Simulated assay, not measured.
Amino acid sequence: MKINSSFDSGNIELVSADTLSNITLKIRTDSNSEFKQWFHFKAHAESGQSYGFEILNAKDCSYVDGWENYQVVASYDRQYWFRVDTEFTSEKTLKFKHHFEQATVYFSYFEPYSYERHQNLVQAAQLSDLCQHKILGHTVDGRDMDLLVIGDESKERKMWITARQHPGETMAEWCAEGLIDRLLDENDALARSLLDKAVFYVVPNMNVDGSYRGNLRSNAAGANLNREWQNPSMEKSPEVYLVREQMKQTGVDAYLDLHGDEALPYVFVAGTEGVPSYSDKIKALEDEFKRILESVNPDFQDKFGYDKDEPGKANLTVANSWVGEEFKCLSYTLEMPFKDNANLPNKETGWSGERSYILGQTLLNPLYQLVDKLRA
């Protein structure tokens, strides 16, 4: 048995491979941080055999509740990812086994979204006459901070989308890709009509350093970007600093920040009811957004989610709260599961990149319905 994670977004440490039934592993921590949960590795062995794996430090990971009813994803071709029977044991380790139909299998916490695919997404998008690619600056590791401007910047309504502040939440960039592709489809009547009234500013990956390094939640400096919005710095969190400065230049009329949740097996949103400026108008926009999205995509629901903040008690270091307060606008965090969607389960794939992509496309429906109501 050979284990390797020396590639884009790889993360695992081999402890021992003494027997076929018990190959023991550990997840390493994020760069300059104590977060850990994301893993992604390649296993090479004799095909036709079954092998058992055990992640010994699952109990020490950042979101232990995330292992309950969780299933590892695997792939032979790195295109189609399927779920593998997994057990969170009484000893709080994570065990899974798999019969190798081919010699090499990739295993991951969720379907990966590579830096190479990110670059391809950006380059392909800029080929459209509807899209401009802008580089806002550079990350801690010196990578580009990519912004896609879709539509005419002279339009009055300004829509902002950010994804993957937490690099291990790869479903967020799959979702962003779906939204981008639909916006750029000149045969999509809804997208064309929406761009007649609004321009979109899309950051498909806020945390390209952490994504490449195989981090769960942190950038290269160890910062949790979604706790940096009140006071970011070019030293610790340039990704947030650069995006925030651009938002101040353009203004924001609606904002969606795309994420994944380790524990809850649902798609849901978190709003801004706790910010000081929260109003009846914003509540009405939030309620209508949820109603429309639920009607066009049953993967979304509004029964299960996070507890709502008390009035005036929002954490303004979090992106959607800071944006909602700063611009007095509709501002949502959208969460997708690492597990399956409990309301519409798919035993073969669970929640997946494809379902995230489709969700991204349907996010345009509520924005289209609300575009004329976003400003008084």
Score class of each variant (00 low, 15 high):
F327D: 02
Y201H: 09
P345E: 12
D60P: 01
G210R: 11
A124I: 07
A189S: 14
R244W: 03
Y368V: 03
R143H: 12
M171G: 09
K197F: 00
R375V: 08
Y332F: 15
L293W: 05
Q246V: 13
A74N: 08
A176L: 09
Q49G: 00
D181N: 15
A189M: 09
Q79M: 02
D372A: 06
E68G: 06
S295F: 00
V240A: 03
L258I: 13
L147P: 02
A191K: 04
T317K: 15
Q246I: 13
L56K: 12
D188Y: 15
L367D: 02
S193C: 07
D30S: 07
N215P: 12
L242P: 03
E13A: 07
L285C: 07
V199R: 00
S21P: 05
L367C: 06
V323P: 02
A125E: 09
D196Y: 00
H133N: 12
S356Y: 01
F338V: 11
S233G: 11
K155E: 12
C131T: 13
L195H: 03
D65Y: 03
A263I: 06
S233H: 06
S352Y: 08
G214L: 01
M145S: 03
M206L: 14
P167G: 12
V199E: 07
K97Q: 14
V64Q: 07
N320Q: 12
R28C: 06
T170F: 05
L370P: 04
V15H: 01
N346H: 13
S233I: 01
L225V: 13
S108A: 15
V323H: 02
K92W: 11
L225R: 06
N187V: 02
E235Y: 13
F200W: 10
E310N: 11
V84L: 08
D30H: 07
N57F: 03
P204N: 07
G214W: 05
T139I: 12
N215I: 12
N343Q: 13
T24R: 14
L94G: 06
I358S: 02
E354K: 14
E156G: 03
E235C: 03
S16T: 15
A284I: 04
D185N: 15
C61P: 07
D129R: 08
Q126P: 01
